[in-house]
Design a protein around this nucleic acid. Structure first.
Lengths: 319, 319
DNA sequence: TTGTAGGCGTTATCAT
DNA sequence: ATGATAACGCCTACAA
């Protein structure tokens, strides 16, 4: 016990005793076993972060910010790659339930609203993203509809009249359907009709698909002068696809993305986009989780936090 | 004990007993406590991965691959961001020493050859990168000199005669100095003199610096027709900087990077680069670490693994 | 100020 | 086939 008191720098240890202990620790090259300490406290000192994959501009940035925020609270972050599959997301939840993590930040991409019940667990969970609303957990989301409307409005203000959108499948409530709703809203308010041909979908919202789809749009003779992409990865791909097809951006087509990933600023042309304030989101997610971890009683209402956003104007829309 | 036997699906449990246990487990909504299990086995089930930051195309890809490889062995990965600082790298080592991790994969960027002694620890460590060679641990490295030589040779073969290099400070043995050596080697063999003015350095090898430096090179009137960048992030920036300065790639200047990050393929123009076979590297690092974790005696010689590589030819060199 | 006892949840060992 | 006991390394609570 006295050793423990010395290690934890607690008072009520005689100077001489303290030094004897320290000497012995040095002599034996003793190290506290943090795992054992956590175990005895019923903690692991680690939170889980489940994302579809970490090798994408968006999720790697999210992970970086969350790791930094967690570190300030002396928590480590273990990353789980779900590949956007429902099973893997549920698996991450169960690892947390198995007390491998003190709490879980789950970026849902496979689970849907129907799975909200699965979140009714007795350990801390914060959910990120747009596929589950009003679930029995704290939730950090983006202002998808409003921000998508603002992005589309920006294209309109720059003179675009036939604005296409490149988004994922929209069968469920998720990023794509919400951003599509914002797009429609902007067109409506501007009195522009939403030509169904201008609504294009990709299988997975990544660069590869962005390239392919953008080329096809041009080569099929689709007439458009603006393009709103569901995220910056798709937009990066689209810039590439348009270049391949000989379309000049922003002269012939203006392009705007969503996320403001690090790369966007450095593309040729640099990419206009929506910045959903990643730092605030990550910070908030971590803080919500920690509040749950530290609360003793089931406690507070579940919070729904929607991040502020801004439109970042760059060359791809003639900025 | 019988319960434990049931949970772990071990034999020597009567059918009826097993069912009684399973029934009780279901009734009580029992979950194994993985942390406790690991603790009793003297393991944590988690390895540490220390990288400068996870929000970069290169390190996020590395992290993704390592997480996937570790998962196959049922190990979780905890990520530590060191910001390339020596202190933080040593801190990651000490967390590992404190039995928070079963082992550590350390991508050294702040520690140098002089710190090799610090790696003499009694727990498994695999070191990644080019700053420490011949240390007392397993090491996974890139074929920097050879690959840089091949990249430079590729520029020469494409007709470049005044080839610049954009690399980090070269005061120590690291990525930059090794790749610079390869660059010099290629010029020598081709009988081209290495004009010192063509050797340009950046503070940190990232996109932002790549943009700034490339612009400056053009605007200062430096005469060059080829550019080898120390990594793809710098190269992405350089493409952007050259575009700003009105230089056409590949017509006026051909550009090649190093790393083959996911984005390279989708840039405009797409970026030629060196592919150091990330998957093989990550796989190898994890396997080496696991071998150490599982070995009972101090065991085998320390292995130095150098990944194979290939030159990927794309538009930025006229491919 | 120091030290003893007990517990965290699991598994290994050994006895029944 | 089942179960008692101890151990993993630390901490809390309490006793000396």
């Amino acid at each position: 016990m006295t050793v423990s008191n010395v290690i934890n720098d607690r008072p009520n240890v005689r100077r001489a005793t303290r030094e004897k202990v320290l000497e012995a620790m040095a002599r034996l090259d003793y190290r506290v076993n943090i795992a054992a300490r956590n175990f005895s406290k019923g903690r692991t000192g680690t939170i889980g972060l489940a994302v579809p994959m970490v090798n994408s501009p968006y999720y790697s940035r999210l992970a970086a910010t969350i790791i930094t925020a967690a570190e300030r609270h002396n928590l480590r972050v273990s990353i789980e790659q779900t590949g956007a599959s429902r099973e893997n997301e549920l698996h991450a939840l169960s690892l947390s339930r198995n007390r491998l993590y003190d709490g879980l930040i789950l970026s849902a991409a496979g689970m849907g609203q129907a799975d909200a019940e699965c979140l009714k667990v007795d350990h801390p969970v914060v959910i990120l993203g747009e596929r589950i609303f009003g679930g029995p957990v704290d939730h950090v989301a983006m202002p998808n509809v409003d921000a998508a409307e603002a992005a589309t409005r920006h294209l309109i203000e720059r003179g675009c009249r036939r604005i296409a959108i490149l988004c994922g499948a929209v069968d469920e409530v998720d990023v794509s359907s919400l951003r599509l709703a914002g797009y429609r809203q902007a067109l409506d308010k501007a009195g522009l009709s939403a030509d169904p041909a201008l609504i294009q979908t990709v299988e997975r919202p990544d660069m590869r698909e962005g390239v392919a789809r953008a080329r096809e749009m041009v080569e099929s003779g689709l007439d458009f002068d603006g393009l709103f992409c569901v995220n910056d990865s798709v937009a990066m791909g689209a810039l590439r696809g348009l270049a391949c097809a000989g379309v000049r951006v922003p002269d012939q087509v203006k392009v705007i993305g969503f996320d403001n990933v690090t790369e966007s600023e450095f593309l040729v042309p640099s990419l206009s986009t929506v910045d959903p304030d990643h730092d605030t989101m990550a910070e908030r997610a971590v803080n919500l989780l920690i509040r749950r971890i530290e609360e003793t009683e089931p406690g507070a209402e579940h919070e729904e936090f929607v991040s502020p956003f801004s439109v970042v104007i760059r060359e791809s829309t003639g900025g």
